[in-house]
């Protein structure tokens, strides 16, 4: 790849906000080298921007002096780094074994019917993205799911209706 092409790609980086830079710098104090902060930086940017765009990837790569290919190999590896836009609320739906035994598949169908989305999709109003997640570690209260940072346990169809409604009403 020519140096010109590398330079023109790098120039597509967006400018990190002061807040993002401040938070990334705080993380840098906790690790002996900058590369270790890569995942943290991705998560910080995602917290502020909702997801990690190519422009954000380039910006983090430049800021931490990590090759963007290395950063991408980390970003695409982890379930919770979103490389495409997601809805306002991400539903992390546990479909591992205990939840499966306790009937999570019918809960999945119910969410599918209520929101018109299946795994990997975002609702038309942009309110919800529906994703599967490996065992959430709350198996005695299965089926369970997270919406944003909140855990919801012992799911039933009625409970799911209430949960969806409460997030729809949030601003």
């Amino acid at each position: 790849m020519s140096e010109n092409l590398i330079a023109s790609t790098a120039s597509k980086a967006r400018r990190l906000t002061d807040e993002e830079i401040h938070e990334i710098e705080h993380e840098m104090e906790l690790y002996p080298d900058k590369r270790a902060v890569g995942l943290e930086a991705l998560k910080i940017v995602q917290k502020h921007q909702g997801w990690v765009s190519d422009e954000s990837m380039l910006a983090i790569s430049k800021f931490l002096e990590i090759p963007v290919s290395d950063l991408e190999s980390v970003a695409t590896f982890f379930n919770l780094v979103y490389r495409q836009p997601v809805g306002e609320n991400v539903i992390l739906f546990c479909n591992s074994v205990s939840c499966w035994v306790m009937g999570c598949e019918s809960m999945r169908s119910h969410i599918n019917e209520e929101l018109g989305i299946d795994f990997g999709q975002t609702s038309e109003d942009g309110k919800f993205t529906f994703l599967p997640v490996p065992c959430l570690g709350d198996c005695d209260k299965a089926p369970v799911m997270m919406v944003g940072d909140d855990l919801h346990r012992n799911l039933t169809q009625e409970k799911i209706n209430d949960i969806i409604l409460s997030y729809k009403e949030r601003k």
Binding site: L30, V74, N79, P134
Partner: peptide, 27 residues
């Protein structure tokens, strides 16, 4: 003591994968 929060992936429970993740590498 430093709390490092991960971002999913079961394989990070394997101790050497965990160390790679902690170093900021693909786990």
């Amino acid at each position: 003591i430093i709390v490092h929060t991960s971002a999913g992936r079961y394989i990070c429970g394997e101790e050497t994968a965990l160390l790679n993740a902690l170093e900021g590498k693909r786990a």
